[in-house]
Amino acid sequence: MPEKNIKSNYEPKIVAFFCNWCTYTAADLAGVSRLKYAPNVRVIRIMCSGRVDPQFILQAFASGADGVLIGGCHPGDCHYAEGNYKMLRRFRLLKRMLKDLGIADERLRLEWISASEGEKVKLVINEMVEQVKALGPLAIPQHLKNINEELKHFPGEEIREEEMAHA
């Protein structure tokens, strides 16, 4: 049963944006504490969850991520006072908008993880990997490639990117 095999071997790709002051430090702590968690997450360190432009999240999905995880400081603890609230507000609307665009709820997650919560990093990542695995691949690049086969020629994104560089 090759199909089943593919599904059980499927390993989701998750892009994580972790705040320098809390979740990234917590992930470090998880590391030095030798906590084991799923290797599916590609962590990007940012200075504040408030720096996560919704464009980053959409770009991650558009580039083939199956899930996006954002880690920030607990409410009231932001190093820059308000950044995590800004993220929370964007997150609430982005969730709704992504649902309208056919992207399941579990694929985007925001968690408050302080620098001392190495264990929570492990739990959140493991749980999210399991949930996204159950959903199966999102595979937007492949999806668009399949649709573009209906075109005679499909320069598509390459041309746009090239032009963006000149704009």
């Binding site: 919704p54 464009q55 999240i57 959409l58 770009q59 507000r89 609307l93 908008m97 704009a167």
Partner: peptide, 21 residues
Amino acid sequence: SRVRDQGAKMLSSLCSNIDPK
């Protein structure tokens, strides 16, 4: 030219300035 996705950028700008926390 500095923005790739107009909708995401507008959502970002608008939501950042919502009053409740």
